[in-house]
Amino acid sequence: MEIGVCVKRVPMVGGTIVLTPDGQEVDTRMSGFTISPHEECAVEEAVRITERLGGTVSVLTLGPAVAAEQLRDALALGAGRAVLLETDGAGWGPIATAAAIADEVRRRAEAGSGYDLLLLGNEAADTGDYQVGVRVAHLLGWPCVTGIKHIEFTEGGLRAGREYRGVSETFDLSLPAVVTVKEGINLPRYPSLPGRLRAKRAQIEVYPVSPAPEGLRTQGLRVPAATRQQARIIGTGVEAVPALVGLLDELGVLS
């Protein structure tokens, strides 16, 4: 099974989210970067599948040269090959991103070892566009399903499952296919030491890509105004318990 996994480098933000003074981006000077969580699970899923069925996991990212860091993280988890679709660092829209990914998938097919399955996250943590996977599928003419939390292989295809409004639903897809997954499909492993060492030495294939303007243009970002007042401290330690009981009663949840 040849599996491509698309990951995105996103800022790792903690207690607060700070914007650059021009309001165009998240200020990342104080924070690191990480792989968007759904995609971390996509990497884990791909590694598990190839551990069972054989094959290679190729991890792809579209981003600046420093996004190689996220590719190495994925290599440390067990991906075998890494591809950087290198941008000049400017933001890319979902249409151009999908086109660049589809080009890479075709290139791989022409090289004779095309993907049987392309995994992506359901949505990127930062931009939340919810569409790159589906657009890639259309460009390739492959079947596609999104938001998946369970994958199993069937004769000639795969069965993908998710829950929707309390009802579980499954989809049968023929291969090759595009599947976008959500966190919770598995519990990603921690990288092993040998994995880390291998990742450090691994070669990354780099293909430069150039953006195209899109119809949806960001004007600026802002942090929504806080909706809550500063908290009222109702007490310290067990001494606070009577007041806490009183509060729960007042809020109407003790009946």
Binding site: E123, G128, Y130, Q131, R135, T146, G147, Y164
Partner: peptide, 24 residues
């Protein structure tokens, strides 16, 4: 609606038409 289905169907519509989709 920006539900699982809404987002999925609109992404397909965006891909079919080549038009951008503004999510959420």
């Amino acid at each position: 609606a920006g539900t699982g289905r809404g987002a999925e169907v609109m992404a397909h519509l965006g891909a079919i038409t080549g038009l951008p989709v503004a999510a959420n």
